[in-house]
């Protein structure tokens, strides 16, 4: 596996020497901001990982590709195949097992993480699609010393039974509070409309979220 800190990207190898920077090259090629972020996240190509690098198309894989993922405020270098889902990258490659894989089909939202603060199902997203975006997982919600007010409210309201759906529930409800600090119960119901709780703890999830909204307002 190539060292992701070494500039062995073919673009850099070809053009770096001639004083053409990677960023400049991409700009010159007329790439959009999103496209530039994307290509810069895919770093350190080796010739096997990236076979065609014209201005418009970059081929990755099928083998492992070194990429950088921004997760919970930190940059992580990982080597993943294009078929790796974001959920698998988090759990297997980064050891962040707070995000659960339950149905693996988009039908339970147990794997909910935020992509730039927007809640998404990480089991139905390729990890490479998270390049250039900020991923937030349940591990990133609390600070080192304190749980997120919503996590505290979940504990206080005993808003879990087996707990398997809980990380997804918390991420969905916390995303709601980011967007709408004064939700009604209807808003909470709507925000977790895709979160399946086999144990049926929904009423506690509603009450915990409504109380956390109140606490966060006072704080």
């Amino acid at each position: 596996m190539s060292d992701p800190t070494k500039p062995n990207d073919p673009l850099l190898r070809e053009h770096g020497r001639k004083g053409i920077t990677r960023r400049g090259f991409l700009k010159g090629a007329g790439l959009t901001a999103a496209g530039t972020a994307l290509l810069e996240g895919v770093q350190a190509f080796n010739s096997e990982a990236a076979t065609s690098t014209n201005s418009e198309v970059t081929e990755l894989g099928p083998g492992p590709v070194p990429v950088r993922l921004h997760v919970n405020g930190k940059e992580h270098a990982v080597s993943i195949e294009p078929r790796t889902t974001l959920a698998e990258a988090l759990r297997i490659h980064l050891g962040m097992t707070g995000t659960k894989i339950i149905c693996d089909r988009g039908a339970c939202s147990g794997c909910t993480v935020w992509l730039d603060k927007v809640p998404v199902n990480s089991c139905m997203m390729l990890a490479v699609d998270a390049i250039g975006h900020e991923v937030t997982t349940i591990e990133g919600l609390s600070t080192e010393s304190e749980p997120h007010p919503l996590q505290a409210a979940f504990v206080k309201h005993d808003a879990m039974q087996c707990g398997f759906c809980t990380p997804g529930m918390v991420m969905s409800c916390a995303a709601l509070l980011e967007k709408n600090p004064h939700p009604s119960e209807h808003d909470v119901r709507h925000a977790i409309a895709g979160n399946l709780c086999r144990c049926g703890t929904y009423p506690r999830v509603f009450s915990a979220t409504l109380e956390a909204a109140g606490n966060m307002r006072r704080a």
Binding site: A34, L38, S52, S55, E59, P82, V128
Partner: peptide
């Protein structure tokens, strides 16, 4: 899921060529 090559595209023309 089977493994595959992923062609990342940033333009319509690029995608159509693939």
């Amino acid at each position: 899921m089977n493994s595959f090559v992923l062609a990342e595209c940033t333009t319509v023309e690029g995608a159509l060529s693939q």
